[in-house]
Simulated scan of single mutants.
Amino acid sequence: MGYKRHPKKRYVDPSSRQMIYSKGRESILKKAIELSTLDDIDVGLLMFSPTGELTTYASKGRVEDMFLRYI
């Protein structure tokens, strides 16, 4: 049989949302670092948590400089 995709649901409980975000944040940051090192590309990442906390990543230099270069 095949892979059955389950529909995503929005978590209403703030503590559940924060827990899901923190797990996903680590995975996304790990993938961004992997892309920037293996493929030698510029990666800029901005993420906002459910509580409003900002997480940034830039493969080369500062995030602000990278986004200004492409705007």
Rank of each mutant, 00 (worst) to 15 (best):
M1E: 13
M1H: 11
G2D: 12
Y3L: 13
K4D: 15
R5K: 14
P7F: 11
K8G: 14
K9P: 08
R10L: 15
Y11H: 15
V12A: 15
P14T: 03
P14C: 07
S16Q: 14
S16L: 12
Q18F: 03
Q18R: 08
M19F: 09
I20F: 05
I20K: 07
I20S: 05
S22C: 10
S22F: 08
K23V: 06
G24H: 09
R25W: 09
E26A: 09
E26K: 07
S27N: 09
S27K: 10
L29M: 10
L29E: 05
K31Q: 07
A32F: 04
I33Y: 06
E34A: 04
L35W: 15
S36G: 07
S36F: 08
S36Q: 09
L38C: 11
L38T: 12
D40R: 08
D42R: 07
D42N: 06
G44A: 06
L45Y: 01
L46Q: 05
M47K: 04
F48Y: 11
F48Q: 13
F48R: 12
S49Y: 02
S49K: 00
S49M: 00
P50N: 00
P50H: 02
T51P: 00
E53L: 10
L54Y: 02
L54N: 03
T55V: 12
S59W: 02
K60D: 05
G61N: 04
R62L: 15
V63T: 06
V63E: 04
V63W: 06
V63L: 14
E64F: 01
F67G: 01
F67E: 02
F67Y: 05
L68T: 10
L68G: 05
L68S: 09
Y70P: 01
I71D: 13
I71A: 14
I71N: 14
